[in-house]
Design a protein around this nucleic acid. Structure first.
Length: 779
DNA sequence: TTAGGGTTAG
């Protein structure tokens, strides 16, 4: 109650000393009691409420003015509307203020410009700029900064259009710059539209050639060839005095438009202008070094932040986390993350994305779970970052639960998330759901198409993949490097040599994309598999980039299939030369010798492998049963159900042989007797996993097995399983590490009641679901 | 009045 002691007049003259709502209300009451309710007094009270951000109280005063509101009252209410994101109301007020004959002064424009920015109203923003120039307030620092910020946002909005396709809006108008003399009318008529029967809704859907497409109403299209970054520069250069905000704004503008060199040049000028860079400057500059993968300059900035006490700034921290992660130094990202005193959704997103992008899928999932435990509500970016982890780990149950959460919270409209879902379902072996999500997308972008095409490719549906690829081009979505990888992969899996050759040439000639290792590897693989071994050899030899060991190893495997030992030895030499640690090549050479009966040379290869300390990565197959991962390696007897699996295998094998199935022992390349080969085949990891799936699920259930190595198609085995009415889906788990064989032991089973879900908040529900995911099984 | 994070890659 100390405020009572301070004279009322003094308080009213220094409204900034009022810090709380309670305090403001007290003053309001006191004024009404002792001083009356004159317009100017009430305007002062209004400005106090407005500065504290109390819209309701501000409006009560504003709406009780009997005479015309003073300029202070107008400015306060405009400011308060903008502060609350009520941009339309703010601009309506501005228009009404103009109509009432009041002249806006310099400190109303920052709010008005912010409202134009919030609505992405290009036309109105430029009109307001005209007004600012006409009133001669363009030299004002805050107004100049707000102008630059507005043009920066307009520019980035523009940039966004180029990479996406959009549906058509219902109205679009050609916009031409309004001559200044027409300014007043145009601004006011704009407001009439606002209030009229066709409310102005500025939901911008996108750009089409040279049109801006919007939904809901009259909206200008940007002037052709308008580059807003030029306006930013112009305003910046014209500003008579600049502060660090001005510098930061123009730098951020450059960074967002990919003008990294311009941004860095401007940063260097800051020093000359006698201004000190602050945390805003630093967090704008860091993404440049992430983009350039320039760890040394990034580290310099990191050092600067530490020396200047910015180390607990979460904006800088998330930029640093991202920068280190993009430079593949995710350990440094984690270190910074764990030192942060407080974590917001973006810090979490940055570290989760950093882990997933660097292949630390388990770590990413662990952090995601921790994020929910910390009661931080995930955003759409969280999901598009975490989903690839499910995709790469091929954990369908986890992906499905995330999908449920995503749908519940309406995140599934986001093109990033939808693409990630398509990819996840495809990688986890559920191509149908992947397709249905893809089909529901309103405007799939190139990444969405590519994910779907790659999904078909991985599932061996080559024709479907190529059909989509052509459809994508028909829809004017331009394929990039990765899209061609997907299409060529489809050809490679489908044995479509001619199509692959066509695509390969089309990529170079029509799209100007220079082929990378993946493209070369796909074509080389196809040539090899078609038996054109010499041509494949020529093709690889003539690559314009240096072939890696694995490209040659592709040909080596073709040599094995076509039993060409001479060429195999030549190719083997190449691999050993380029990549002496390539285990695959030793195994292939050993197998090539084995199948030719040259056991001694095969043994030599194995000895060479051992001599180099290399061991073959065991083939591992895993299967999800009741949300638990069960992993098997050949001959593994540690599973609790091992005896029952073995029993089931025996019964099935008998049934199969009775139906005429002949076990193919040719593929077993060990120097052992037939009976032993038979036993080796039966203890094969895939068969163990499938047998386990059959005995632990009801008849007719889809059995989805995942392998760490490339999958060879089922033969008689598959036919038999189909007869059992069990559908078997095979999923190759590229890039994922083989599971520890102990994962089937019973760890951390959740016994919570499902009904709890209903009364929980979305975050709690997700947390509850995740608790059931038994992430312990992977870590 | 200024700042940070995301999807596809045999």
């Amino acid at each position: 109650m100390s405020s009572i002691a301070i004279p009322l007049r003094s308080l009213l003259q220094n409204p900034s000393t009022i810090k709380s709502k309670h305090h403001a209300k007290q003053l309001h009451a006191q004024v009404l009691k002792t001083e009356g309710s004159s317009s100017s007094l009430m305007a002062t009270i209004l400005s106090i409420y407005s500065h504290l951000g109390f819209l309701h109280e501000s409006l009560i005063i504003f709406n009780t003015f009997t005479s015309l509101p003073t300029i202070i009252a107008w400015k306060s209410i405009i400011r308060c509307y903008t502060y609350h994101g009520l941009f339309k109301d703010s601009l309506t007020c501005f228009s009404n203020m103009r109509a009432s004959g009041k002249h806006p002064d310099h400190n109303v424009f920052p709010s008005v410009l912010k409202s134009c920015t919030g609505l992405m109203d290009f036309k109105l923003g430029e009109s307001v700029h005209g007004c600012i120039i006409r009133l001669g307030v363009d030299a004002d620092l805050y107004t100049g900064n707000a102008l630059m910020n507005m043009y920066c946002k307009f520019q980035s909005m523009d940039e966004g259009f180029d990479s996406q396709r959009f549906g058509s809006g219902n109205v679009d108008l050609v916009y031409e710059k309004i001559p200044e003399r027409k300014f007043e009318r145009s601004l006011d008529s704009e407001m009439d539209v606002e209030k009229g029967p066709h409310p102005r809704s500025l939901k911008v859907l996108g750009k089409n050639e040279n049109q801006l497409l919007v939904i809901g109403g009259v909206t200008p299209r940007r002037r052709k060839d308008m580059v807003y970054i030029e306006s930013v520069k112009k305003v910046f250069d014209m500003m008579p005095c600049k502060d660090i905000v001005s510098w930061n704004t123009v730098i951020a503008g450059y960074v967002h438009n990919g003008m990294c060199e311009e941004a860095l040049r401007t940063v260097r000028e800051i020093g000359k202008a006698n201004v000190m860079p602050d945390s805003f400057t630093l967090s704008s500059v860091l993404p440049i070094f992430a983009e350039y993968v320039d760890i040394s300059r990034g580290k310099e900035i990191h050092g600067y932040t530490l020396r200047h006490g910015f180390d607990s700034d979460d904006f800088i921290a998330s930029s640093l986390i991202d920068m280190y992660a993009k430079c593949t130094r995710v350990d440094d990202s984690l270190r910074i993350f764990h030192l942060l005193p407080q974590l917001d959704v973006i810090s979490w997103n940055s570290i989760i994305a950093g882990c997933v992008q660097n292949g630390l899928f388990d770590e990413g999932l662990k952090l995601f779970r921790q994020m929910l435990t910390a009661k931080v509500k995930p955003s759409n970016l969280t999901f598009s970052s975490i989903m690839p982890a499910c995709a790469h780990l091929t954990t369908l149950h986890l992906g499905k639960q995330l999908h449920g959460y995503i749908t519940q919270n309406g995140f599934d409209k986001n093109v990033f998330i939808a693409s990630a879902l398509v990819d996840m379902y495809a990688k986890c072996g559920n191509i149908r759901i992947a397709r249905s999500i893809f089909d529901k997308m309103v405007s799939p972008d190139m990444v969405s198409w590519t994910a779907m095409i790659m999904g078909y490719a991985l599932h061996g549906h080559a024709n479907e993949a190529l059909l989509l690829f052509h459809k994508m081009k028909m829809e004017n979505v331009r394929p990039n490097y990765v899209a061609f990888v997907a299409a060529l992969t489809a050809c490679s899996h489908g044995g479509l040599l001619d199509e692959a050759r066509m695509l390969f040439n089309c990529m170079i000639e029509d799209y100007g994309i220079s082929p990378g290792l993946e493209h070369y590897a796909a074509v080389a693989d196809l040539l090899g598999r078609a038996g054109k071994l010499e041509e494949a050899y020529e093709f690889i030899s003539k690559m314009h980039i240096r072939p890696t060991g694995s490209v040659w190893a592709t040909l080596l495997s073709s040599c094995r299939v076509h039993k060409n030992i001479e060429l195999a030895e030549k190719v083997g030499e190449k691999v050993f030369q380029i990549d002496p640690e390539n285990i695959g090549a030793y195994i292939l050479m050993s197998n090539i010798y084995s199948s030719a009966g040259r056991w001694k040379e095969a043994a030599k290869m194995r000895v060479a492998m051992k001599g180099r300390g290399m061991t073959k990565k065991p083939a591992c197959t895993w299967i999800e049963v009741k949300n638990k991962i069960h992993a098997f390696v050949a001959g593994d007897r540690s599973h609790p159900y091992y005896d029952r699996i073995n029993e089931a295998l025996k019964v099935m094998m008998e049934q199969m042989e009775r139906k005429g199935y002949v076990l193919n022992t040719d593929d077993v390349l060990h120097d052992v007797e037939v009976e032993q080969k038979r036993s080796l085949l039966c203890s094969h990891s895939e068969r163990l996993a499938i047998a386990f799936g059959i005995i632990s699920t009801p008849s007719g259930t889809t059995i989805r097995v995942t392998k760490n190595l490339r999958i060879s198609p089922f033969q008689g085995w598959e036919v038999f399983l189909w007869r059992l009415l069990v559908k078997v889906v095979q999923v190759p788990a590229y890039y994922s590490k083989p599971r520890n064989t102990n994962t089937h032991t019973n760890k951390g089973v959740h016994t919570g009641k499902e009904s709890q879900c209903k009364s929980l908040s979305p975050t709690d529900a997700a947390l509850f679901l995740l608790n059931q995911m038994q992430l312990g099984a992977y870590s």
